[in-house]
Design a protein around this nucleic acid. Structure first.
Lengths: 153, 153
DNA sequence: GAGACTGAGTTCGGAATCCGAACTCAGTAG
DNA sequence: CTACTGAGTTCGGATTCCGAACTCAGTCTC
């Protein structure tokens, strides 16, 4: 059960996460995705929900649209109005978001009673696992922890 | 070893991820964790590896130590020297990191061959799944996507 | 039809962060 | 004595962030 890496790590070429974090790795972007998952779509609602400054929101949404995470679509003509919806790529960030939520739950103290993600059918707390399709095997983050030093992320 | 909250919130009560992202949600912190996972421990090595400005690195490491993600430990006495090691909490961020890597692989265009995480025993690409311990069932991110709108992240 | 309101922004000046480059400080090696 | 190392600190300038106020088109209320 080792996670291995197949790559040649060149010096100057940017790696995947580096590039990704350049898009999504600021204080607001992930929060915007989360807001999108919660159904928020309109400019002012993002603004109120997150308490983000308007100019920053403008710039951030523009960038997320440019990188295909949000889509800007007209939802009204009379006075022309636009809303922001998560694309498929944006929705695909949810596992990362869930992982962060799980981490928060476990390691972040002094949180008021907050969300606890559960498996809807049975109510048991969700765990995030690594899963090999061909082996049909599942192993949890704890198993991964043990090998992290040998992972080349 | 727990992350505790220090900041005040102005308008609404802070949720788990909001707090977490306040600690880890800047351009460098996650990259620092990743570097830590790759075995980097010394100040200058972080500096060279990430190309982060030294004053920023100082501040960031201090904060990550304060929040229990890194540990600053002396590794030499003669000239006293310190290194930074990931704590258990820090290592526990790896699932989130892996989720981001997976996302990058799939959705980040203009990225040529980069890292591909595989299941070492069989060489199959890793998938990240959600796993219910009591049901013994595993389901992929795609299944989760369907529920995200009803999840309160 | 005058005034208030709405939603999606833009403009502003000041505050906070970021940056690279050069400096410090203790100890060590030649 | 000089050079070097590792872990920072200090510096000035550039960038980004912020809240508050403004714009602009259309719409609702009186």
């Amino acid at each position: 059960m080792y996670v291995r890496q197949v790559m040649e790590n060149a010096r100057h070429t940017e790696t995947a996460i580096e590039e990704t974090l350049r898009v999504v790795g600021d204080r607001w972007s992930i929060l915007l995705v989360r807001a999108g998952l919660r159904g928020i779509r309109r400019f002012d609602d993002f603004c109120d929900d997150l308490g983000i400054a308007r100019p920053v929101l403008t710039e951030r949404l523009r960038r997320l649209v440019k990188f295909g995470i949000f889509e800007r679509r007209k939802y009204q003509d009379k006075p022309v109005r636009y809303e922001y919806r998560l694309t498929e790529a944006g929705l695909a960030l949810s596992p990362a978001l869930v992982a962060l939520v799980r981490w928060s739950e476990e390691y972040s103290q002094e949180l008021s009673s907050d969300v606890t993600l559960v498996h809807a059918p049975c109510g048991t707390e969700l765990e995030q696992a690594f899963w090999c399709r061909s082996c049909q095997s599942t192993f949890g983050p704890s198993a991964v922890k043990g090998v992290t030093s040998s992972i080349d992320l």
